[in-house]
């Protein structure tokens, strides 16, 4: 599985090239072609955060720009889970 099971927020991250995203009313379905695991992205905001992650120099920057402050801790945790599942990779 790609990526370490931690989220180094100071690094840049991006959607893994081994992952396909399918938009859904609840957010998106992510499928990892190597582990063959399905992961649910449970909000539209999380989907756009993940898609746009690579535009930013760090995960901190992306969270700061795209997610309102009160929600940031929750989305930081979501990114951590996605890194653990290999859905996002460190650049």
């Amino acid at each position: 599985m790609a990526g370490s099971p931690s989220l180094d927020e100071a690094r840049a991250w991006r959607l893994s090239s081994r992952v396909s995203l399918r938009d859904e009313p609840f957010g998106a379905l992510a499928y990892h072609h190597d582990t063959r695991r399905l992961v649910f992205l449970k909000s539209r905001d999380l989907v756009s955060l993940v898609r746009r992650l690579e535009e930013f120099a760090s995960a901190t920057d992306a969270l700061g720009e795209l997610i309102e402050e009160p929600q940031r801790a929750r989305y930081r945790r979501a990114l951590f889970d996605l890194a653990t599942a290999g859905v996002i990779d460190g650049c």
Partner: peptide
């Protein structure tokens, strides 16, 4: 809470089947 909200969304159908 989040899990049951997600389940409600699933029950409303998806763009394509999961399974």
């Amino acid at each position: 809470g989040a899990e049951s909200a997600l389940r409600t969304r699933f029950e409303g159908g998806l763009n394509a089947p999961i399974c």
